[in-house]
């Protein structure tokens, strides 16, 4: 793998009501953002099961971004409050099993924060690019398919 050409794959799980709309605003406002993030729209940050994040890493993500409404703004009132508690545990757990915290990012981006979305997503992509490819999880996944002919 040519190191100098490394382009990170970042999976962003974003809530439908705030961050997704914020990202949409960034687009319609013609704000420039790096194209490395794959957005996955979910109804609410409360819907983001940590198993999604595991699956993303397993499928080759170099970094994951989770983003939703600011506290108090949740379309379902409390989804993001519950999510926030879960993430507190989840980030510590991932760190504990050896997944660097530079791989998993969280943010609150509202529907009006197109500019913030661009800053956050570019920031995440730059951090992950600097870290290089996340090989650990890829290796264990590839272990199962090492014999497949290319």
């Amino acid at each position: 793998m040519a190191e100098e050409k490394f382009e990170p794959k970042v999976v962003a799980f974003v809530c439908n009501w705030c961050t997704y709309t914020g990202a949409d605003l960034a687009g319609t406002s013609r704000l420039k953002q790096e194209p490395n993030a794959r957005l996955i729209r979910v109804p609410c940050t409360g819907r983001i099961d940590p198993v999604f994040v595991i699956k993303a890493f397993e499928s080759g993500a170099d970094g994951v971004l989770i983003s939703g409404c600011h506290p108090g703004d949740c379309h379902y009132n409390t989804g993001n409050f519950h999510a926030r508690r879960r993430w507190t545990f989840f980030k510590e757990l991932l760190n504990f099993v050896g997944i660097d915290s530079t791989r998993l990012h969280f943010s609150w981006v509202s529907a009006s924060e197109g500019k913030k979305w661009v800053d956050v997503v570019n920031g995440v992509i730059d951090t992950v690019r600097e870290q290089g490819p996340f090989l650990k999880y890829k290796e264990i996944k590839e272990h199962d398919f090492q014999e497949i002919e290319n």
Binding site: E142, D144, F145, I148
Partner: peptide, 11 residues
């Protein structure tokens, strides 16, 4: 189990 959309294995 699939490795991506176009490959996998039977296990």
């Amino acid at each position: 189990e699939n490795c991506d959309l176009n490959c996998g294995r039977r296990i």
